[in-house]
């Protein structure tokens, strides 16, 4: 048993869990950052950076990994060979904790289902392909050509299904798909815990006049259902949004709002808000700039058996302009 690579694998697993749920024990935040959100003229492009970091919005920890992007090798702390991370590596999927996978296949054929998927929705509601996909030591990056006028939603989504249970005094861990759950996870076991995790990180950009077709929630996981258009945000005005979980209002949910530029101030200036009975919350912006908003939802008690308890996270980067 070679010790170092194994340890590294655990480390990567822990990072992966944080991508799915940035409000974990660690303070790392996952985010997308657009080069522009409000554009005029024609032949417009935006570049999007995707990263996981402590401070917003600096590339200082890890690239945010997206399926279908090139692969790079990162040697961390001078370890030999242990630091390889595939482009579609199992980010955003593994359970928190860090014991080795037991039972099931952690990397099922057909690619890792837990890698972040990029989903760009154009003004007409149709899918748009990302271009010039690249990855570096600290960030992933891609371009989006805004061929049609209107609003685009650029999102990454993570989905994972995990189980853990005790077998002969040993903790078993499993990760897989809903189809394989019944085949590979026992119906009854000591301390059986099945969790379905969903994460969504997104930004909005508009060429010309803002439109709303791309903003419609998909009805899966935790999502933003904007009331104020997310590309029409100005200092001194209150913006209103709704959070929905599986398409229904997410009531009494804590929402965190943090302005960019943390490196150059002493105070985090974090705003903690709460959604009302309609799942709505309102933000009054003090300064122009980029803002990171984040919310998480989690079942305290699972329904039991193999029915998964739910865990979902939402994050968006919004640009606020001056008057």
């Amino acid at each position: 048993m070679i010790k170092m690579p194994f340890k590294t694998a655990l480390k990567l697993t822990a990072v992966a869990a944080l991508v799915a749920v940035p409000l974990g024990a660690d303070a790392h935040r996952a985010w997308l950052l657009p080069s522009a959100t409000v554009l005029s003229g024609s032949d417009n492009w935006v570049t999007i950076d995707a990263a996981v970091s402590n401070d917003l919005f600096y590339f200082e920890h890890m690239p945010f990994r997206i399926a279908g992007f090139p692969q790079i090798r990162i040697n961390r702390g001078g370890q030999q060979g242990g630091g390889q991370m595939a482009g579609a590596a199992p980010m955003g999927g593994a359970p928190a904790g860090g014991a080795p996978m037991g039972g099931g296949d952690p990397t099922p054929p057909g690619g890792a289902p837990s890698a972040a998927q990029l989903a760009i929705v154009g003004p007409d509601g149709g899918a748009v392909e990302a271009q010039n996909k690249a990855i570096g030591r600290y960030r992933s990056t891609f371009d989006v050509q805004l061929e049609k006028p209107g609003t685009y939603r650029i999102a990454t989504t993570n989905a994972g299904l995990f189980a853990s249970w005790k077998e002969n005094g040993q903790t078993k861990r499993w990760r897989g798909s809903l189809e394989n759950l019944a085949k590979e996870v026992p119906e009854k076991a000591d301390d059986l815990r099945v969790t379905q995790s969903q994460g969504r990180i997104e930004v909005f950009v508009t060429s010309g006049k803002p439109t709303t077709d791309a903003l419609k929630p998909t009805g899966q996981g935790l999502e933003l259902d904007p009331i104020t258009h997310p590309n029409d945000l100005f200092v001194g005005e209150a913006a209103k949004f709704r959070l929905v979980f599986d398409g229904k209002p997410a009531r009494k949910l804590k929402v965190t709002v943090i302005p960019s530029g943390i490196r150059y101030r002493q105070n985090l200036q974090e705003m903690t808000l709460e959604t009302d009975e309609q799942g709505e919350f309102s933000v009054k912006w003090a300064e122009p700039g980029m803002y990171w908003i984040n919310a998480s939802i989690q079942d305290e008690e699972g329904p039991g058996g193999r029915t998964p308890r739910r865990r979902a996270n939402y994050a968006a980067t919004l640009e606020v302009l001056s008057q």
Binding site: S40, G41, N44
Partner: peptide
């Protein structure tokens, strides 16, 4: 190609 329209959005209001 009407490229000057690219900066119209800088007159933000």
């Amino acid at each position: 190609d009407n490229e000057g329209t690219k900066w119209l959005k800088d007159m933000r209001q």
